[in-house]
Design a protein around this nucleic acid. Structure first.
Lengths: 154, 154
DNA sequence: TAAGATTGACGGTTCAATCTTA
DNA sequence: TAAGATTGAACCGTCAATCTTA
């Protein structure tokens, strides 16, 4: 693996970093302005909503929510539980493990946030791309993600 | 602007978010493991190193470092100054403004971090992309960044 | 009054240590 | 001893208020 990086590739990297920062900023602003939950809350709740029975072990939840660490998820789950958007359930079979379960109130809050988030994705991201670009981006970025996620040591 | 978002575009969005999170994580890990500075430090120092005379007004510096707020940059500059990697200079012409200037020690630390960072970008990002994909990504993401950065209200 | 920059208080995230059950 | 999860302490970043000079 070559360790030099030329202008051609550096420009792509910088565009990647900068586009991410500015788009996320915009969407976060719009969510706040419309009184909706921040993105991290959304990420946790949507992971639960998409899971069987709206429930996931804390460990699995943490693995799905890429932007947070394990203890970060614990902390956020505390806040969501305090807001009544999520509840914890202990299982009988393995009493170490805890499930996080989305509540009806959590589902409602998620449903309110979803269109605002969707509008942000559409307006700041999707609408700026041709279909061909979307195909290329998806393939390339999924490949990058899989490779980076897969690497363990070094 | 349509506010619905279909699976086709959602997949691209998720790939974008996940690839960013996992690649940044990897690179941050590698920097730490090799005893180099974290990315935010790097971003600030490289912005200075690329500027005329290695100096920039705090305000301009904050505008260049997309991933931090104005006061975030002040805070980080405090830490970098404490480490001797950067110093502040007050100017005679406008005594409100402060310049941040990279020090020789800062330049050296930057030079040590640069190849590690470059290797990370190459290994986890650039090497996974064809030249055609790099061209498409750069064009698309620069467009997205410019549009998101440009939008002011709503 | 406004611009440049900093600060105090606060909220969120992480690391390492800890607790509990397997 | 290990796995699942949580917690205490420290660190980082942001917002709103503030300080200083124009």
């Amino acid at each position: 693996v070559s360790d030099a990086i030329d202008e051609f590739h550096l420009a792509a990297w910088r565009a990647f970093i900068n586009a991410h920062a500015s788009v996320i900023d915009r969407i976060e602003d719009e969510l706040a302005r419309e009184g909706q939950m921040p993105l991290t809350w959304y990420d946790v709740l949507v992971a639960l909503a998409e899971a069987e029975g709206g429930r996931l072990r804390m460990n699995d939840l943490a693995r799905k929510v890429v932007v947070l660490s394990r203890s970060g998820v614990t902390r956020l789950a505390d806040r969501l539980e305090a807001e009544g958007l999520l509840r914890r359930e202990r299982t009988a079979t393995d009493r170490r493990g805890a499930y996080a379960v989305i509540t009806p109130k959590g589902q409602e809050a998620l449903d309110r946030a979803r269109p605002v988030y969707a509008r942000g994705i559409a307006g700041h991201f999707a609408s700026r791309l041709s279909d061909e670009e979307v195909r290329t981006l998806t393939a390339a970025l999924e490949r990058i993600d899989a490779a980076a996620r897969g690497t363990v040591g070094s």
